[in-house]
């Protein structure tokens, strides 16, 4: 067995080591879920079938996306950034395991840990208070696949952002832009189904849609048969493109490190 499963396992352990801190985060995720859900109910009362969602769909979407904030790390960031800034990344690059594979393994462990500790509370709390839309076993399996692909897309995006630190002295501006794109185009502010006209069409084609909106649609059973396959293929396409770009950028970063000494 290679080293990567161990990296994943240790990352999982690390991210489940402080259950109190995670519980605190989950509480805030839940509170925001309630506020967002109430707002969306207000809108769906005025427009009952907006974007093909009914009110239960809208509420479920809300709490599901709150539950996914942690696993998909919608606010961005990766520990790798710190290691690049401090120069510790040189150690990572000279390991016999690939940098990207290592951090992907690490990120999967992180996502799993976050899902385990922060995924439950918003969903349970939401389901207790509001009418909710649960998928069947088949839907759940499809959702698991969509979520895994969503995490891969999220990793692909954040890995590119992290590597940019090799070239940028101050990455805070880039991070801010990334945050805006991520929050807005993933459907966290308003579900993408409620985006009007062309804006909606564009938003649904961007990689951020593959992080949250697509998994949520799969959870709500909005896709079936060929539609489902198409949705998953859309996610897989973005994941492959972003991770491929990350691979090329890793090679460039390694060259830069060798030539410029960091």
């Amino acid at each position: 067995m290679g080293v990567f499963p161990w990296v994943t396992w240790f990352a999982f352990r690390r991210h489940t080591a402080y259950p109190l801190g995670s519980a605190a985060e989950a509480l805030t995720n839940t509170v925001f879920g309630f506020i967002r859900a109430s707002v969306l109910i207000g809108l769906w009362r005025a427009r009952p079938h907006l974007g093909g969602y009914d009110q239960a769909d809208a509420v479920t979407f809300c709490f599901l996306t709150q539950a996914l904030i942690g696993p998909v790390q919608i606010f961005g960031g990766m520990e790798l950034t710190q290691r690049i800034r401090s120069g510790d990344v040189a150690i990572d690059l000279y390991r016999p395991a690939g940098l990207q594979g290592w951090w992907l393994a690490d990120d999967l462990g992180r996502a799993a840990g976050s899902l385990a500790l922060r995924g439950g509370p918003p969903m349970v709390a939401g389901a207790l208070v509001f009418p909710f839309h649960w998928p069947g076993p088949g839907g759940l399996a499809a959702f698991a696949a969509a979520l895994a692909l969503g995490v891969l897309v999220s990793f692909g995006l954040r890995y590119l952002m992290a590597l940019a630190v090799f070239w940028l002295h101050d990455d805070r501006g880039l991070n801010a832009v990334a945050l805006v794109m991520s929050l807005f185009f993933s459907g966290m502010i308003v579900p993408l189904v409620a985006f009007p006209g062309t804006l909606g069409t564009v938003a649904r084609a961007l990689p951020w849609a593959a992080q949250i909106q697509v998994p949520a649609d799969v959870f709500l059973g909005k896709h079936s048969g060929a539609g489902l396959a198409g949705a998953l293929a859309f996610q897989a396409m973005w994941a492959a493109a972003l991770i491929g770009a990350g691979h090329l950028l890793t090679r460039a970063a390694r060259r830069r490190l060798v030539i410029h000494g960091g």
């Binding site: 801190g21 805030t28 509170v31």
Partner: peptide, 12 residues
């Protein structure tokens, strides 16, 4: 470790 929860009060 309560920072995560106190965000409910402020940002919430």
């Amino acid at each position: 470790d309560s920072h995560g929860a106190t965000k409910s009060l402020t940002y919430g």
